[in-house]
Write a protein that binds this DNA or RNA. Structure first.
Lengths: 132, 132
DNA sequence: CCCCGAGTTTACGTTAACGTAAACGTAAGT
DNA sequence: ACTTACGTTTACGTTAACGTAAACTCGGGG
């Protein structure tokens, strides 16, 4: 049998509240099994939750995250479905690459600025030495 | 004289509404000059706006974006200020690198999945050929 | 002089993503 | 049997990030 998790297990692990997890379920992002009323989360549910949270960190809305994640859970039975899925994947991939360009620009931007700060600091230090 | 921009100039260029730009000003992200009542945006203002929007695309809140952008506009006069700025820069840089890790994981994840889809599709195609 | 387009302020409305509280169920420990 | 911990639903509250509308100003054209 595969391992299962309670809602507070996952809440602890990902440092969010149970309310947040229930909210994601209400939005159709996760669909855990039930044991009576209690939600029982499988390993796959856990992975989906992790994907949602990563999506959020990258600036996607829950709706956008759902679009992406649902691709990974699609049926992929026939060739036609596989083709349209590959198209959608490509589209999403471009979005991600756009973000990577933004991110790389932001980082190199910051690096350049930091380098200038260090230069400036070194100059100040050398002047101070010269004054001794 | 350097080039200046009206609020609708920038709104057009960045595909946002004037309201959005005014909102950023109200939140302290931009502080354009005034000519009477009219806002006059300098090239530097334009750059700040671009930074805000990039921050948003990367999933930062306006407050977070402000923190980062304000670093680039800080005085940096004395050595002490330079040192604390370099510390803050390093901290922000780590946030960006965290995001890059997430992003790279998301992309390679998607690539692997797409590859599996292509394999599966190729298999279906070869079977179809064999059936002819 | 009047109007038009562009800009302004003020203020209330809206949406997403939860927070918070109430009222209740259930299983385990003492 | 009572408490405690954890879970549930329902529903209203909150915050960020704007949207939307009203009422005003202001410089230029006809």
């Amino acid at each position: 049998m595969e391992q299962t998790f309670s809602i507070s297990d996952l809440a602890r692990e990902f440092d969010i509240t149970p309310r947040t997890i229930r909210h994601y379920e209400a939005e159709g992002l996760i669909a855990p099994a039930r044991e009576g009323q209690r939600r029982i989360y499988s390993g796959r549910d856990r992975v989906r939750l992790a994907l949602v949270l990563r999506g959020k960190r990258l600036g996607f809305s829950l709706a956008e995250a759902k679009e992406i994640i649902d691709l990974y859970a699609a049926p992929q039975g026939e060739a036609f479905q596989l083709r349209t899925m590959l198209e959608k994947l490509d589209e999403k991939r471009e979005m991600l690459e756009d973000k990577r360009r933004d991110l790389d620009a932001a980082i190199s931007n910051m690096d350049k600025y930091a380098a200038r700060c260090r230069d400036r600091l070194a100059e100040l230090e050398s002047r101070r030495e010269a004054a001794e």
